[in-house]
Design a protein around this nucleic acid. Sequence first.
DNA 1: TATTGTTATACTCTATAACTATA
DNA 2: TATAGTTATAGAGTATAACAATA
Lengths: 159, 159
Amino acid sequence: MPGGGDIAGSGLDTDLGWAIRLVSSAFRRVATESVADLPGGARAYLVLVALAGGEPPSQLALAKAVSLDRTVMTYLLDDLEAHELVTRRPDPRDRRARLVLITDTGRARLDQVRHSLAVAETRLLTDLDDHDAHQLRTLLSRVARTAQRDSVAPDEADC
Amino acid sequence: MPGGGDIAGSGLDTDLGWAIRLVSSAFRRVATESVADLPGGARAYLVLVALAGGEPPSQLALAKAVSLDRTVMTYLLDDLEAHELVTRRPDPRDRRARLVLITDTGRARLDQVRHSLAVAETRLLTDLDDHDAHQLRTLLSRVARTAQRDSVAPDEADC
DNA sequence: TATTGTTATACTCTATAACTATA
DNA sequence: TATAGTTATAGAGTATAACAATA
């Protein structure tokens, strides 16, 4: 049926780039609503997750942790600070740097978003059983970790 | 070590959105070189893959097959046709539509890119053994297929 | 001289609306 | 009235360069 319906048998459905593109855009679609009331959207969520973990990092350390450019971090934090989800204070040990802290409001909002995202992710992986979904998460995380290492340390390598 | 090095223990490395974002951008990074001499880049590659498969589709059918907007398809094909990688001819059965055909030059170029991409993909998945890499490809493709179905047929559903 | 944070700029990708010619 | 293709426009995301303050 030329000009008409589907294109069957195209090698597309085994193409890795095609799969990554579709999964990525599908995730964005299902996650948009969950992060809609976060100023800065999905990237702000990643920042809050990183901040909720440990010691207050500098903006640069934070940018590296979430794989965002430091120039993006600036106005992302401007937005988050304006909504009192994070605060910035000078680093006593380096007067160039500013430490970023998550507020109690920020933690509360993060919990809400986290819960909503969990539902959205389940919807995305709805066709996978528990084992396959866990497997996919694990493998993606492994590739992501090595990808981050490779992109962060091009000049810190042994050369 | 506040303000200094890594942020360990942040829940980030088990976050699905973070993993998808990083894998997606890492893939783009390793694939960029492979598709560099294709006018239209990664999206043009997808178009050529879809065209190499079966009967010449209309632009709209093609756009649906590769999950691109039909407005994108227009100038993507303009570019590909200018480089003689595809041709367009009127559909004898519908004078509004144009059928898209891949040329011999297009097929040859596709083969080159395909080979180069295979190397790049191997580099991306370098930390996974054969079984895990195959598993990841399979699971991603499954999620991608359902994602495409869900995004293509919101009005074709039983409502 | 190098680094942290900031600002400005440009380029890509995506989404939307409006227009034409057909059906 | 609806569909195929085209054109134009606006928005998000990303990347880069340049600057001030500090190390």
